Amino acid sequence: MARTKKGRAVSGWLVVDKPAGITSTAVVNKVKWAFQAQKAGHAGTLDPAATGVLAVALGEATKTVPYITDALKCYRFMVRLGAATTTDDAEGTVIATSDNRPATDAIAAALAAFRGDIMQVPPQFSAVKVDGERAYDLAREGEAMDLAARPLWVDSLVLIARPDADHVELEMVCGKGGYVRSIARDLGQALGCLGHVLWLRREWSGPFTAAGGVSLDDIDRLARSEDIDALLKPLELGLADLPELVATPEGAARLKNGNPGMVLASGIEWGDQAWASYQGRAVAVGIYKSGELHPSRVFN
C-alpha cells in the first residue's frame, strides 16, 4: 500500500534573504514548515555566518534546483588582512599573523590571478567528503587534510573599497562550487600578508536577488496562513538560463507522460537543452531533436 505524502502539494521558489547565525538547512526546514509543503530543498549552501540569497525550492520546483546551482552567483565580502584562521573566516581561531599590509594597487593587481578558470583548494572546514566523511567533521577532530584542488570559473573579481589598512572589500561573480573563504585565504598568501573573510553576502544567484528576498520575520508572520503563497515565485524562474520552447497540445500531453513531444522551435539547434511550456506552464526539460523535446525531467 502506497504511503500518503504529508503536507501540501505547493510548488514554487521562495527567495530568502538569509540572516547570519542560522544554517541553510534550518532555513529550508522553517520554510517547509511554514508552507506545510511536501518537499523542499535549496540551491546552494550559505555558511551560517553568511547572509543573502538562499533560494528555496518547494514541490515541483525542486526539479529545477540543478539549473540554479549551476548558474553564476555574486558575492560581496570583506577580507581581514594580517591574520589566517582555522576556518578561513572570522569564526575560526587565529593560527598565524603578519604585519605586512600591501598597497591598494598591489591588491587590485593580485586579483587578476583569481579570474577565469582557476584551481581552488576548499577550506579545511568545508562540506567536501574525505573517505566518506565531511571535511569539517575531521577538522573539528583536529585532523589536517590535504584536500584536492577543484576547478572554478571566476567571471569577475573586483576591489570595491579599502576602508582601512586592515580591510579590503571585494565582489566576485563565479560559477558552481566556489569558496569565498578560499579566495580570501589564497589572496592573503599571494600578497604575503595572510587573510580571512570577515563577512560575506550573496547578492544574487541566477535570476534571484537579495533585494527581492523575504526575511525570516516575514515567513514567521505569514506561516501556515492563506497569504503565505503570495511570497512564492513561479518554478519556471529556475529555468531562466535555458531556452523556452512552446509545446503543441499533443506534444504537451506526450511530454507529461515522459515521451518525446512536438514543440515549436525557434533559434535552437539539434541537441541543445531546453524546456517546454504549454499555456504558460513548464511541462518538461530535455534535449531538442528534430522538432521534438526528449524529456529528462517532467513537471506535474
Score class of each variant (00 low, 15 high):
Arg281Ile: 06
Val283Ala: 00
Arg297Phe: 04
Ala282Met: 06
Pro249Gln: 05
Gly261Lys: 00
Leu264Lys: 14
Leu239Glu: 02
Pro234Cys: 09
Leu255Gly: 01
Pro260Tyr: 05
Leu245Arg: 01
Phe299Thr: 00
Glu250Cys: 06
Arg254Glu: 03
Leu235Asp: 01
Leu264Ser: 12
Tyr278Cys: 12
Gly280Gln: 08
Gly238Trp: 00
Val285Phe: 05
Leu255His: 02
Phe299Ser: 00
Ile268Lys: 08
Gly291Lys: 03
Pro249Tyr: 08
Trp275Asp: 05
Pro234Ile: 03
Asp272Ile: 12
His294Trp: 11
Val285Asp: 03
Leu239Trp: 02
Gly286Tyr: 07
Leu242Gln: 11
Gly267Thr: 09
Leu242Met: 10
Met262Pro: 06
Ala230Val: 09
Phe299Leu: 08
Asn259Phe: 14
Gly238Tyr: 00
Ala230Gln: 07
Gly258Pro: 05
Ala284Pro: 06
Glu250Asn: 14
Gln279Asn: 14
Gly261Phe: 01
Leu255Glu: 01
Val283Asp: 01
Ser296Trp: 08
Glu244Trp: 08
Val285Pro: 01
Gly267His: 11
Gly280Ile: 05
Gly261Trp: 01
Thr248Trp: 13
Arg297Ile: 02
Lys289Ala: 11
Glu269Ala: 15
Asp272Gln: 14
Tyr278Ile: 10
Leu231Thr: 00
Leu242Lys: 07
Trp275Arg: 05
Arg281Gly: 12
Ala282Asn: 04
Val283Arg: 00
Trp270Lys: 10
Gly271Leu: 11
